[in-house]
Nucleic acid binder design. Structure first.
Lengths: 229, 229
DNA sequence: TTACTTAGTGTAAAAAATACACACTATATT
DNA sequence: AATATAGTGTGTATTTTTTACACTAAGTAA
């Protein structure tokens, strides 16, 4: 977010790439700007870091203001500071990505004034973005591609209880390639961080799959040995 | 660097962890502060980002002012912005690491006023650091540990021509563990990015080892296929 | 010539990654 | 009741990668 420049001094902001998964597609949350520069363009949500906020706090606040969600997994990944990235002055921005399970209902609340609206758009079909936000998004996607191979972040995109097929789907979408079902299951189960539940999927018109849960305790124990998908 | 706060507004700085390898040890460059706060403490070199500098430019400048070196491999890796990390006000700092071959001669030139002196200190025996610089250093080391496994950054710590033993030594120091000589050589050679030279090591009082050179052209070709050490 | 120090090399075993296809089960449809 | 549909769930053989491991060769110094 970079619409108002309080001084001629440098401004420090945070921009967020919010990745959401609705069971089908991977999407990001974009806002349609209501102010110059780049009025009517789509942009990543962002804001200026407050004087008493830590960086992580600031990122959480931005996400909360936009979605009403708290406790979401977020991580900073790169600072963008080209002197001319903002046409009206120096704005250094720190990029965060967040991972969100969509399909809940309380997402998206009233938005601050500088945006007309906010929308979840599939990453396969993104509009032109304001500022250098395309670059910020690209780097963010690259980052989660790497990270999903070594850290258990895929679960952040899924509901508490999920099927192995859903999990595989997340990996395929993030990595941008098909995976072999049998090999995927073999490997993911061999990590020993999933708990098989007694429950089955509901509301499907075919054989219901077994539900699993990510076991944080087990993961914490095994940690050190890093996962390597 | 965080000694002078022009305004009460937030200040944006860059701090650098300069890793140097002299053929024996891995060291970092620290400065002894000449000003409050943390007068007489050791600290990472840093400075405020100038109004017309990009972040990378700023980092390069800081390194140049300290060492007289240009064209050094540097990379940003994390932003630290706790509101209380600096006792005198809000300073958000972006951390860079740099990789430098020591043993040249032109390193270390006159230092700016806020430092009494600068010194290369072995990472195995670091003093207490000012501010949150220990945290910054820790994260930097962690970062290059990861990166050396996937990117050809080890060569940045070595002279143009190096022996396989020297290369292995760098890996061992960064990763903090011993590696098997035969397996190391097999693997590193199988990447196909080293050029074996007709030259031998000189000035050693034992059998001279063959020299190699990192072949950037070959590496660029093979890229996409990522190295995985 | 000998002693010393590091360079340089191969193989076997274990583990991990890959490729690959069909029967099962729950529901919906007729 | 029978059938169609759609996704679940499973095993094995092959290839590739990783690991463990020890001696001879070459050059220098005494």
């Amino acid at each position: 977010m970079e619409q108002i420049l309080p001084h001629l001094d440098s401004v420090f902001s945070i921009d967020c790439v919010l990745f959401g998964f609705d069971g089908k597609e991977l999407k990001i949350l974009l806002i349609e700007r209501n102010e110059e520069p780049f009025k009517d363009w789509w942009a990543l949500p962002g804001n200026i870091v407050g004087p008493d906020e830590s960086l992580d706090q600031s990122a959480s606040r931005i996400l909360y203001e936009l979605t009403g969600l708290r406790g979401i997994y977020m991580e900073q990944y790169y600072a963008f500071g080209d002197p001319h990235r903002h046409p009206q002055g120096r704005v250094i921005t720190l990029a965060y990505y967040a991972l969100i399970r969509l399909g809940g209902d309380k997402e998206l609340r009233p938005i601050s004034t500088y945006a007309k609206r906010a929308n979840w758009l599939p990453i396969t079909d993104l509009p032109k973005l304001a500022f250098d936000h395309q670059k910020i998004y690209d780097k963010g996607l690259e980052k989660i591609k790497r990270r999903i191979k070594h850290q258990p972040i895929a679960f952040e995109l899924l509901p508490e209880k999920f099927t192995l097929t859903q999990l595989q789907h997340v990996y395929e979408l993030v990595l941008g390639k098909k995976l072999d079902k049998r090999n995927f299951r073999k490997k993911i189960i061999s990590f020993g961080v999933l708990k098989e539940l007694d429950e089955k999927q509901k509301g499907v018109s075919y054989r219901a799959a077994t539900l699993y849960r990510f076991d944080k305790r087990k993961y914490a124990k095994l940690f050190g040995k890093e996962i390597s998908f």
